[in-house]
Design a protein around this nucleic acid. Sequence first.
DNA 1: CCTACCGATCGGTAGG
DNA 2: CCTACCGATCGGTAGG
Lengths: 229, 229
Amino acid sequence: MPSAKSNPSEDVPTRILHEATRLFAARGFGGTSLSEISGAVGIRKPSLLYHFPSKEALRRSVLENMLSHWNEVVPRLLRAATSGEDQYDALLRETVSFFTADPDRARLLVREALDRPDEIGALVQRHVRPWAEVVCEHIRKGQARGHIHRDVDPEAYVGQMINLIVSSVATYACIGDVAPRGVSADEMRRRHILELCRVAKSSLFISSAAAERSRGVGEPKPASRTTTT
Amino acid sequence: MPSAKSNPSEDVPTRILHEATRLFAARGFGGTSLSEISGAVGIRKPSLLYHFPSKEALRRSVLENMLSHWNEVVPRLLRAATSGEDQYDALLRETVSFFTADPDRARLLVREALDRPDEIGALVQRHVRPWAEVVCEHIRKGQARGHIHRDVDPEAYVGQMINLIVSSVATYACIGDVAPRGVSADEMRRRHILELCRVAKSSLFISSAAAERSRGVGEPKPASRTTTT
DNA sequence: CCTACCGATCGGTAGG
DNA sequence: CCTACCGATCGGTAGG
């Protein structure tokens, strides 16, 4: 009996695409051989090359497949991208969820950004800039209305938040994990994502800081010292 | 005359190390051949293998070389890591400078984190966690004294900021560059780093938001609220 | 530091 | 979807 390693309920091209995505994300495009991929699917290398004419074609298909998933969630993202802190929280969580749902998406994106910066740069310009511009417009509106920090640089802010989300999922539990010994990896992942959302909101909304300060108990409020108002 | 491509004033092992660093950062460890490296140095492959017994040994030397540069700046970092917003700004800028001074450091770190997460995880635990813990302690002190947001998760916050710095240098001008057409790459890089520092501080210090609000227009606010220690 | 060479593996093709 | 095979290149060695 031949040992088919991947889900046999899917058709062969789909299984190739899935295994290639997994292996490209884990070892990189150059670090993965066609034999490894075909082996994971349970077929021989020439059979793989029947479905995808070259390794390069397979790479492109993997990227296109990820992009099609991204295009599925963009409408949800745009619906959440109205001004207001709660809607922004929803937008953040939707975006984080896209990558946590399959961390290979984040790893693949970072790898490709390092290997082929021009190609990924163009891809970002086409597929995320239009959506980022909507968010930037909401930020500018919020600044005019006084509930978003006036020194936010909208384009740079949105870029850094995208960068933060992608990279924290991609290199999670490695770069940036400075947790004390007692904390489990899952617990730390939860805390990292919570903190990511807090940082994103706290550095954007004025109301967030104000609400928090007004909540402040437990801390000996320096009411006697810096009082006033 | 043989065409030595790298700086001939350095000795050969050093030139090998530099070229290997550059190529590993640009194409990854698996994506770089020993012939490419030796060619960039201006020698033949077997000569390279005289100085470094294997490709794996060369990889480790490249990493160790980067670590030794890191260890050089750590004292400066610790000196800057006292409480207070200005000192924190200096700490951020020192850390950013370490990576912008040679962006290959950031690219190499991200690549290794993707290729060998366990190895880089252990490395981070040894070389950045002790320093991160100092920062965390300052954050907790600041929270007790009321000038740092109480809902900051110190370990997660520090981890995310490290992540943000490294990844924004590594994949700069690619992921996260959603700039409008008219802006030059250099100008956008400056804005990204400025915004990174703003986000880091604004999401940490209460005084930052207060000071900014006092600058604001169209916002009713507590007039003078200067927190000094 | 070099030339010459090793077995293994790479992406890809022929032909069925 | 397979077996058989291609030239090129890989990391590494022998020997000087």
